[in-house]
Design a protein around this nucleic acid. Structure first.
Lengths: 153, 153
DNA sequence: TTTGCTAATGAAAACCATTTCCATTTATAA
DNA sequence: TTATAAATGGAAATGGTTTTCATTAGCAAA
């Protein structure tokens, strides 16, 4: 999968995907919107500008983006997948999530990210060698109760 | 949630849940079977012994077990939830997963678990204080291609 | 620019894991 | 033993996601 030129446009072409109006707009929404959007939320935002783009296309495009490593798909336990652009130059940068199992609220955090990245690098290297597993991505999440939901107990 | 007596039996009672044949058997299957079982797989195993226990009960019991912290629910991207008993005394012990995004194979690993646990403890403490978030559990997963799926490229 | 090939698309239908409904059963404490 | 509410099973409903298929549109080549 030699899909690593700069810019998603090049990456698309390189991987044999065509650049279409829908894909451009979906990527635009994902880039400009912070947060953890569901497919439907993305569809609604895209729909504001292009009424012709359907939910099916949104799903298909999200699959494509995830498969070429531009997008990460999350399961926060609320019954629908949520998506985030993977962008090192993103102001939010590398971060992880605290997931409230009660109200499903998501809190982004980036504390100890440096230490974490170092441990991950080490782990990834060892696991790659030991299991001949080619690591593309990782996921770290904490589950628990947000301050508000603790009070309701 | 003062649900922390020893043994699941006490934990059940303490949390106001009744101990039933179905729940006993489901817990038995989960304890005796290694791996990452789906609800249906658990149902089929339970069904071998007790034909009267339905899939609905399996789902409900899994929810209960997860809510009292005996069970962890996973999403490995194959369209169904998978479950693992959380058991410190388990021979497998604390481990995480490598998920092949191609064939959905799961590899358990426990390399660098000590360093990881230390970092997690530190992170959990800091995040608890900073966000007043009560952490109950965490998830670490690596995504990529297993050795077999790398060859098929 | 035009053409031809094929990927991409939209809308509707299908899919299918999970949840809900509801009448019946069962665990448990009095 | 009995009363009560929790637990249950089976069927139906739910709803996010995927598939189908006829149509549209990228884009490379002429």
């Amino acid at each position: 999968m030699p899909c690593n030129k700069f810019g998603w446009h090049g990456k698309f072409k390189e991987c044999g995907y065509r650049v279409t109006v829908g894909r451009k707009e979906i990527l635009d929404v994902l880039t400009k919107t912070t947060g953890h959007l569901s497919a439907e939320e993305i569809y609604l935002k895209v729909h504001e500008k292009y009424q012709s783009i359907g939910l099916t296309t949104v799903y298909r495009t999200l699959d494509v983006l995830a498969s070429i490593g531009l997008l990460q798909k999350f399961d926060f336990g609320d019954g629908r997948a949520r998506y985030e652009i993977i962008d090192a130059t993103n102001e939010k940068g590398h971060h992880h999530h605290l997931v409230c199992t009660e109200c499903k609220r998501i809190i982004d955090y980036k504390d100890f990210i440096d230490e974490e990245v170092e441990l991950l690098r080490k782990t990834e290297k060892a696991l790659s060698e030991k299991y001949k597993f080619e690591i593309k991505n990782h996921l770290i999440q904490f589950y628990g109760l947000c301050s508000e939901c603790q009070e309701h107990r």
